[in-house]
Computed example of a mutant assay.
Amino acid sequence: MEASWQYTGTEPIKIKKFLQSLGMGHRLFNDIKKGQGEFLVDHRPVRPTTKILPNQPLTIRVNPEPADPTVAVSHDPLQVVYEDDNWMVIDKPAGVTSIPGPSVTNGTILNRVTGYLLDQQSSDQRPHLITRLDRDTGGLLLVAKHHVASSMISQQVQQHQMVKEYTALVGGHLTKDHGIIDKPIARVAGQVQRVVSAEGQPASTEYWVEAEGTGWTRIRVRLHTGRTHQIRVHFAAIGHPLLGDALYGGDTSQGDHQLLHASRLAFRDPFSQRRLSFTSPLPASFTKIMI
């Protein structure tokens, strides 16, 4: 795998500092340094301690990551919204699991992407899911097609710089058209669900009311943290659980799963330095209620 950038600064800079400014994690840099790849400046191999001069190109060559033998290959349908050499954006339907686990070992999005890349003769690429969704939540997922991309995006994930917006239908009508729910979320020992608890991890959810109908409100939600079930827990905690969400007390008379959809995803591509943004239309489970 190979990637190149042009250094546009005005002062010499060490390779490590430049790559860190682009988003590269420490682990990948050290792997290359230890012989799992090489650094090139002006197309010539250099030491990791080399400084890059203004307007010089930097290239990294990295050995391919071995395929994961524990991930089965699936050729089930996959809706690809966007694809380039480094990324795939997938529109996941509700009811499909993101990654394999003890109860679901095949047919997940990761299995399907693995099969898709093999069909594209991309055998040197091992996909990594950068964002994940609950099985019954549909919408946009970001996939890194190789471990270099996974490393380059890690900083944006850790610092919550990616824009992840959701559309949800909640029960009742909210008192404010815009608000932020700041309530810590904790695990429940031995159970799937989470709860708001002073002993939990900080969690922040911002929302905007977009439409209202009989017994429901459609909201746009942006996550400022990434806790498990965060949106579901927060709106249940303020008395407006998501429609269809049996786990958190939502009305299930019009649906068998939570009405939550990952409708927008945006991030800075660390390879092209462009801002990429994607949207996903609401599924029929939403529109049939909002008629």
Rank of each mutant, 00 (worst) to 15 (best):
A72L: 15
V73S: 05
V73Q: 08
V73C: 08
S74N: 02
S74F: 03
H75M: 05
H75F: 14
H75C: 06
D76C: 09
P77Y: 08
L78I: 14
Q79T: 15
Q79G: 04
V81P: 05
Y82K: 13
E83K: 07
D84E: 03
D84P: 06
D84L: 10
D84T: 06
D85Q: 13
D85K: 10
D85I: 07
D85T: 11
N86M: 10
W87C: 10
V89K: 07
D91S: 08
K92T: 06
P93F: 08
P93H: 11
A94W: 06
A94T: 09
G95R: 04
T97L: 13
T97E: 10
T97Q: 00
S98I: 04
I99E: 14
G101C: 11
P102S: 15
P102N: 14
P102R: 15
V104D: 12
T105P: 00
T105I: 11
N106Q: 14
G107M: 07
G107Q: 08
L110N: 02
L110T: 02
N111H: 12
R112Y: 00
T114D: 03
T114Q: 10
G115K: 05
Y116T: 07
D119W: 05
D119P: 02
Q120Y: 00
Q121P: 03
Q121A: 12
Q121D: 13
S122E: 15
S122N: 12
S123I: 14
D124P: 00
D124E: 13
Q125T: 05
R126D: 05
P127M: 07
P127N: 07
H128T: 15
H128Y: 14
L129W: 01
L129D: 02
I130Q: 08
T131Y: 01
T131E: 00
R132S: 08
R132Q: 10
R132L: 04
L133E: 01
L133M: 07
D134P: 01
R135Q: 14
R135A: 02
D136T: 09
T137S: 09
T137G: 04
T137V: 14
G139H: 02
L140P: 01
L140T: 07
L141F: 00
L141R: 01
V143H: 04
V143P: 00
A144P: 02
K145W: 07
K145H: 05
K145Y: 04
H146T: 04
H147E: 10
V148H: 01
V148Y: 01
A149C: 13
M152C: 06
M152L: 14
M152Q: 07
I153T: 06
I153D: 00
S154H: 11
S154R: 13
Q155S: 12
Q156L: 00
V157R: 09
V157W: 03
Q158I: 00
H160Y: 12
Q161W: 09
Q161K: 15
M162T: 14
M162D: 08
M162L: 15
V163L: 14
K164N: 01
K164S: 02
Y166A: 08
Y166P: 06
Y166R: 05
T167P: 02
A168K: 05
A168G: 12
L169G: 07
L169W: 00
V170N: 02
G172T: 04
H173R: 15
L174D: 08
T175N: 15
T175Y: 08
D177P: 11
D177E: 13
D177V: 01
G179I: 07
G179C: 04
G179Q: 01
G179A: 03
I180S: 12
I181V: 15
I181H: 01
I181P: 07
P184T: 12
P184H: 10
I185M: 05
A186C: 03
A186M: 10
V188D: 02
